[in-house]
Nucleic acid binder design. Structure first.
Lengths: 344, 344
DNA sequence: CGGCTGTATGTTATCGCTAACACTTCGCCG
DNA sequence: CGGCGAAGTGTTAGCGATAACATACAGCCG
């Protein structure tokens, strides 16, 4: 059997193949492909041509092992179907794009155990940074993060102590401010409708802040309703119906997210309720979807893209930070009164 | 300076650290951590204890290089904000979970150039398979895929020739069937509202199939309207308003996706139009959101989870396929008439 | 009790690439 | 015109793990 023009096609190409095809050393090929060091124009052309015509794709595994550098950033979030996280990812990608870093996404489904294993898996690839949602993590996760020796940014929340850096808003404060606005508008029989998830700490903190401010005005929640899973829009409807049946005199519905809020709003409008006169509504997150609703739901912007951007700046060392350790960036959520709270 | 109990904490731990801490060879540690080969119970315990107490996280980069095996599967999709792709990912993850493989997601924003660079980046990590949306790719992408020597599954679409395997539905057929149902219900002045994106090939194919069937009944589109970017729900409203103003006598609105369809539906109901009597509507995808709408939009299920599942089975070699090369799996989209098409 | 089998462990040689340094040529200056 | 710096290229030695083979030590049989 004679030597074929291309060696065994099942074997992946290596630097050596390119080096042989172009008549220079592997090192020079490596330099050309990474744009590093001095290489003459003629050699560069030769090498690039050979690499392209062979269809060579560098092996980053070997490269990373040799250089002890990995251009990946782990991003760990609870869910993709939440609308919220794609926005954060957009912010992250926008910044990372011109740093040579690349985000790798892991999803936990709000489970601390899954978070731990996703984190373990990610760290085993030795990323140059990690961004993860929330401040609550298993003990093992925290110790992995500190051991890892790379920047870790906890995002979305600042109510607590981060392992390293944190970027987010205070959900307690968001809850308090929303309660304040609702009370100021004159509503008094207020119900909460939200997720059941024991691990949605941010929704929990918003509720805590919310009730705290109600209490200061001598109020307590008139009713509360929780859900898990399913189409959020539909759940919003169903929960709203349940609350209105059970507690007909409520005058305000505070939802833990915009999606169920939108469902509730559609339901109220169908029922012919006077919104915001007889009934006020508010959600949380300021998702795009709201723009298309018959009426703009009151909500609070969670600064999602901004959070992503800043987190990415921190992991990529782009931030003009003087300090050695982590930094905490608290953003301010903006109340969007929309059309579902009475004007004062 | 004396030797500290733990060596330089900035240096990441290696097998050697664990091996020294437990008094066995690196090889034995490696065997324990991978559950491979025969290791005595006593040694296993010793090693596991040492690894845990040190907080050792294996270096998969080195492992992958040595074993020439990478437990990653690249998944390349156009967008995360589309609602569609998270479902596909769910299907993929569900299957991969018990194969030891892990999906890594890349997003192209419907740009062939970005697709090419995302693919290049992924292949440079030598994944054990690639799943990517659509059958249309740049020449370079196709050649990378064939060269890579790993299973490649093109998903969502089967109208065309795949590089290796394909799993999806025929969008031409979906368009034809929807047109058939609409005509059968007696609608005649039909408009199309959809994405402008030149690279949304699947929407294009649906429209082609749709017009084809219209033509067979001697019909042509009464109007068409396109959009790019923005909140899809809002765009659906705006486009619908534009069409109704421009062509008041249309009696059916066919949307390229459910989200804009939902916006259109809300608009029509607000205008007090008789749906589905005076005006019929249909979308595409059967997204969850529809469950919460005042009326159920007619749509067609794109079998998203199923597609993800089967694609994952193919890349993981779980499929009882006899053939050597790729296989093509065509799923059948199901028409969901909902409440926005007249019953015949 | 020699030799054989099998279990439990250690040794050696990569995997494909890059850091660090060594080595040529030049050109240019004193 | 000898020497020195810079530009361009090559050589060597790992990076941290695993495959494949080698070894050690039981137990067991004829």
């Amino acid at each position: 059997m004679t030597k074929p023009p291309h060696p065994d096609p099942r074997r992946a190409l290596t630097l050596r193949d390119v080096s042989e095809a172009s008549g220079v050393s592997e090192m020079t090929v490596s330099r050309v492909l990474r744009n590093r060091g001095d290489v003459s124009g003629a050699t560069r052309e030769k090498v690039l041509h050979a690499a392209r015509s062979l269809g060579y794709v560098p092996n980053k595994i070997a490269g990373a092992l040799a250089s002890q550098r990995v251009n990946l950033v782990g991003v760990i979030i609870p869910s993709l179907s939440n609308m919220v996280f794609p926005d954060v990812l957009t912010g992250i990608s926008a910044v990372l794009e011109d740093t040579g870093l690349q985000p790798v996404v892991g999803v936990t489904n709000y489970s601390p155990d899954r978070e731990e294993s996703v984190l373990y898996e990610m760290l085993s690839w030795r990323p140059s940074g990690v961004i993860l949602a929330g401040l609550e993590h298993s003990e093992a996760s925290v110790s992995m993060l500190t051991q890892a020796g790379v920047p870790a940014v906890e995002i979305m929340d600042v109510d607590g102590a981060p392992v390293d850096s944190a970027v987010g808003i205070s959900h307690r404060r968001a809850g308090r401010e929303m309660a304040g606005a609702i009370i100021a508008a004159g509503y008094r029989r207020i119900a909460f409708l939200g997720t059941m998830m024991p691990y949605d700490h941010r929704a929990r903190k918003r509720l805590e802040g919310f009730e705290e401010t109600l209490a200061k005005s001598g109020l307590v929640l008139a009713d509360r309703e929780f859900y898990t899973g399913g189409s959020a829009l539909l759940k919003g409807r169903e929960m709203t119906e349940a609350v209105l049946r059970r507690t007909p005199d409520v005058d305000f519905l505070y939802y833990s997210n915009d999606m169920i809020g939108a469902g509730g709003l559609l339901y109220c409008l169908e029922q012919g309720l006077d919104v915001p006169g007889r009934m006020g509504l508010a959600g949380f997150n300021n998702i795009d979807l709201l723009d298309g609703l018959p009426r703009r739901l009151a909500t609070m912007d969670a600064c999602r893209k901004e959070i992503g951007r800043i987190a990415a700046e921190i992991v990529s060392g782009k931030r003009p930070t003087g300090q050695v350790g982590g930094e905490i960036v608290e953003l301010t959520p903006r109340l969007q009164p929309g059309d579902t709270i009475r004007k004062v």
